[in-house]
């Protein structure tokens, strides 16, 4: 199950709507091993395409170096589908390389840039196998043990 806070959920949806009809993409980082999506980072879709997304290679390195420096990992990897359902495409499955991450798919096919509901679904993708999971949106993430202790 993916648990995320309402503000992060809203920000992912807003990003997807803003970039429609191109695919939007980004990650939500969190402390290593915590499974807490705490810090959203919108990425530029270097492919600038309605059917493909790719992080720019230089920005990808900068992103990972920042996460390593902060002892973080990608908790959510998200992108949008703008004409199809919020289910991983064959390409998504083939290229998925973060077995520990929640892969979030948002479909903007129904309302595009406008107000209105979107499909927001989450998956684990490990060794080419896709498993959908429940998405739970909470007002705020519960306090983390490590955080209150530090």
């Amino acid at each position: 199950m993916l648990t995320l806070d309402q503000a992060t959920y809203d920000a992912i949806v807003a990003h997807a709507k803003r970039d429609h009809p191109d695919e939007a993409c980004g990650i939500v980082a969190g402390p290593e091993g915590s499974d807490r999506p705490e810090r959203m980072i919108e990425m530029v879709n270097a492919a600038g395409s309605p059917t493909f997304y790719e992080f720019d290679s230089t920005e990808l390195l900068a992103l990972y170096k920042e996460m390593w420096a902060r002892d973080e990992e990608p908790v959510i990897v998200y992108h949008s589908h703008t004409a199809t359902e919020a289910y991983p495409s064959r390409t998504d499955i083939g290229l998925a390389s973060e077995p520990g991450a929640h892969y979030v798919l948002v479909s903007t096919r129904e309302h595009g840039n406008s107000e209105g509901p979107v499909e927001f679904r989450s998956y684990r993708i490990v060794d080419g196998e896709v498993t959908e999971e429940e998405v739970r949106v909470v007002p705020e993430l519960p306090q983390s043990q490590s955080r209150s202790a530090s």
Partner: peptide
């Protein structure tokens, strides 16, 4: 040297 898989898809 750093190896990073692309974050990409369709």
């Amino acid at each position: 040297v750093v190896v990073l898989p692309a974050v990409a898809g369709g």
